[in-house]
Nucleic acid binder design. Structure first.
Length: 325
DNA sequence: ATGGTTTTTACTGCGTC
DNA sequence: GACGCGGTAAAAACCAT
């Protein structure tokens, strides 16, 4: 009786008048000071008098979870209740295994029909479990892709394509014999190139956790097996990044593009590294627009040797000279 | 595995600030 | 004298055969 009454009183102050004096006589729910009704303030861990505000009890322990859930899905996610896990199994031992002994819980042998049933169940359970292991594999790979992509400053859509490529690789069973890291990195590298915001192999390698040889090997393999069409990187696609890294004006950026176009006309792109050409074009353009950039600056930004820049940019100016006449 | 091509490394000489 | 630039030769890396 008293419980339900208190709960109805709780909340509004105007209702708390003389009545609560009598309802609170037998238990400790009255304020020692004024005899008023007590309220528990869960947020502060205190019990206070609703009448006079006296703090009767403080530092009470909240035995609830420290997290809050706003729907059941979130509750499932955040709850940490369950069996202990082990890292020794791909699924941390959380999935179901069906015994092989063909005995029931009392140790009795199963009937023929039951045995067949259990066999079918094992088959399906195994299928779902391996699917799960693929999911986990994917999750780890996607995490890696995300990490590397943000380290390289690649936009969302590139990560998307990279994930798609990785999924395809996974579905086509390209993973066995190759590391998750390697395939993930290759996917990202390919995706960046396809999206027209290429990062050089060196740059990608720098943020990955595998060595370069493995990366090139895996990359080739993935591209070949998946039949990805990755056009040779367009030197122009490196220009904006280099230009902005060097704080160059838009004008010189445009000049750089023109230089590359002129070079393409001359057919001097074949076999040369696109990065080197882009670097040279940026350098040449900066020179033409009287902005101060040294060869070593460019070489550092583009990770290309100064010699290559010199060679390329010499050729660039020739090509442009021919085109201009 | 090999040979041809491209890039890098290392070094040198020249002119300018 | 340090710096930026241009050139060269040899080594290394890369690629297709």
């Amino acid at each position: 009786m008293s419980n339900s009454q208190i709960s109805t009183y709780r909340g509004t102050e105007t209702e708390t008048t003389e009545e609560n004096h009598q309802s609170a006589d037998e238990d400790e729910l009255t304020c020692p000071e004024c005899g008023g009704r007590l309220e528990s303030d869960v947020e502060h861990g205190e019990t206070i008098c609703a009448e006079c505000g006296l703090v009767v009890d403080e530092d009470s322990i909240d035995r609830g979870p420290e997290w809050r859930a706003f729907d059941s899905a979130e509750r499932d996610q955040k709850s940490r209740v369950g069996a202990p896990t082990t890292n020794m199994m791909h699924d941390k031992g959380l999935s179901t295994n069906i015994g092989w002994q063909d005995k029931d819980a009392y140790g009795n042998s199963l009937s023929n029909r039951q045995r067949q049933k259990m066999q079918r169940l094992r088959t399906w359970n195994e299928r779902f479990r391996t699917r799960d292991s693929k999911e986990r594999n994917l999750k780890q790979a996607l995490g890696e892709i995300d990490r590397m992509a943000s380290a390289l400053g690649l936009p969302e859509n590139v990560r998307e394509t990279a994930s798609v490529i990785y999924r395809r690789a996974l579905n086509e069973d390209l993973l066995p014999g190759r590391s998750i890291e390697g395939v993930a990195t290759s996917s990202l590298y390919a995706a960046a190139r396809q999206a027209g915001v290429p990062r050089s192999l060196d740059e990608v390698h720098a943020v990955s956790r595998i060595d370069k040889m493995e990366l090139t090997r895996t990359y080739r393999y993935v591209v070949r097996e998946l039949g990805l069409e990755v056009a040779p990187a367009d030197p122009k696609s490196y220009v904006p990044r280099f230009a902005s890294d060097l704080d160059l004006s838009d004008e010189s950026e445009i000049r750089a593009r023109e230089l590359i176009d002129a070079a393409r006309e001359d057919g001097m792109l074949s076999g040369k590294s696109p990065v080197g050409l882009a670097a040279a074009a940026v350098y040449a353009a900066a020179l033409l627009t009287n902005e101060k950039v040294t060869q070593s600056d460019v070489s550092e930004i583009a990770n290309i040797s100064e010699v290559t820049i010199r060679n390329r940019y010499k050729e660039l100016l020739e090509a442009e000279g021919v085109a201009a006449t």
